[in-house]
Design a protein around this nucleic acid. Structure first.
Lengths: 110, 110
DNA sequence: CCCATAATTCGAAACATGTCGAACTATCAA
DNA sequence: TTGATAGTTCGACATGTTTCGAATTATGGG
């Protein structure tokens, strides 16, 4: 498979991971690491444990786990066990690439 | 439904539209309206007719039509008949919103 | 008016996704 | 070691998606 097609597929997989409202809500929750209009370094990204992250979403634990696995498979989030909990945080590199995807294609004049 | 949920759903629908490699390729083709690192105004966005847009993708006309309808339903592209052809171009407003989605959530320090 | 070209709609088949509950694994505390 | 808490895996079911070919609509040329 050509490099072009690999990139398209990879990017499509990321969009697919964000195409479900529940997953998008989870991702967004992880993304809002800073107070608006402030910046943070990648290692300051908010960490939520799985349970807290799913709070208020009204989905079964098994469904929550499935969704987080999808986000992880797409490279959008990182996960690491810490004691009884599993912590999740956003993969900032991938987020940067997502932003880059839109910018490299079209630059619109003001 | 709350405004928050409406936005999540709307944004998820856009990502879903871009989650298929064929659709993403079509969208990207429309997005590359300018030569790299130059800017264009919204009305300068490249127009492709449906047939040309699907060139090289090896999909049936009915499939192509279906994919473009999905992109249109998500508000990502505009379509207009011009004689025998139907012209497509990118909805720059929506593109801007997509970019904004990522930026409003996380600002990463260099 | 008929025909060719461009695109859409429809129906069907194969496949993928979202969701749950039940059963399971991992960790820590008493 | 036993029990409680946190997550994951599995199987099943309903629903949605991708794709095609065939039939249909739209448009302009001769």
């Amino acid at each position: 498979m050509s490099n072009y097609q690999t990139n398209i597929q990879c990017q499509a997989d990321r969009f697919k991971a964000l195409s479900n409202p529940h997953r998008l809500a989870l991702y967004q929750r992880l993304c809002t690491c800073c107070t608006p209009s402030t910046a943070c370094t990648p290692d300051e990204a908010t960490r939520f444990c799985v349970g807290d992250l799913g709070e208020g979403l009204d989905i079964a634990p098994s469904t929550l786990s499935h969704h987080l696995k999808e986000l992880h498979r797409a490279g959008l989030i990182a996960m690491q066990r810490n004691g009884k909990n599993v912590e999740c945080w956003v993969e900032t590199d991938t987020l940067q690439e997502m932003i880059g995807f839109f910018h490299t294609n079209l630059t619109i004049k003001d």
